[in-house]
């Protein structure tokens, strides 16, 4: 079971790496695509081994439930890493703007495809701004950006109930510093993937 899952995960990672290569800027995406998901894929195998000494029916069920929970959590982490990976390679908001660029739409289409496949997962879209401007206005700007992403995914067919949007304003920058490079990295939307009940 675990082996199978691992195989499936690796396969999907490879599959994904391939699609990532197909995007216009492969050199950037390729080196980072593989390592992170693989590390999470190994996790479910190691954890249950430590639990093995106790082996009656009750605890077996408990172990199974735990295994299942861990498997789900690992998959959630994998999906989140994957989605953020897709989005991390591109600047997709211009200064003080919330419109999606063509590049951003391309990437979001990939995210949408993933979400269509993985129906148990819901997402939180976090809107962010660069460090310029006031805290207050940047909250509204981040909210507008997250909303534009949500609207795009909804139009692609993702149920709005699976998506939540939140603004972090300029409070959670990805890159430090006051360069245009740092600014452009921080004008972004991030995703958190949650397991639905």
């Amino acid at each position: 079971m675990n082996k199978l899952l691992k195989f499936a995960l690796v396969a999907s990672v490879v599959g994904f790496a391939l699609t990532a290569c197909a995007t216009p800027e492969p050199p950037k995406t390729e080196p980072e695509a593989a390592p992170a998901p693989e590390a999470t894929a190994v996790q479910p195998e190691t954890a249950p081994i430590a639990e093995q000494p106790v082996l009656n029916a009750d605890s077996l069920a408990a172990v199974k439930a735990k295994e299942e929970a861990e498997r789900l959590e690992a998959e959630r982490a994998r999906l989140e890493a994957l989605i953020n990976q897709i989005m991390s390679e591109d600047v997709y908001f211009d200064f003080d703007r919330s419109e999606l660029t063509e590049k951003a739409k391309e990437l979001l289409a990939q995210v949408a495809e993933l979400l269509i496949k993985e129906t148990r997962f819901s997402i939180t879209i976090e809107g962010h701004t660069d460090a310029r401007g006031t805290e207050d206005y940047n909250f509204t700007l981040g909210a507008k950006r997250a909303m534009k992403v949500k609207e795009f995914l909804a139009a692609y067919g993702i149920d709005a109930k699976r998506m939540e949007s939140v603004s972090y304003g300029k409070e959670a920058p990805k890159a430090a510093g006051e360069s245009e490079e740092a600014y452009s990295q921080n004008r972004r939307a991030n995703f958190r993937v949650n397991i639905r009940d």
Binding site: D136, F139, T140, A143, A146, M147, K150, S165, S167
Partner: peptide, 25 residues
């Protein structure tokens, strides 16, 4: 949802603030 930008009414003590719902503030 998402409440921020608080401003205390200096006469009544009431709070005026922003709230963002579905991207609209």
């Amino acid at each position: 949802d998402q409440t921020y930008s608080p401003a205390v009414n200096p006469v009544t003590g009431e709070l005026l603030f922003s709230s963002t719902v579905d991207g609209k503030t």
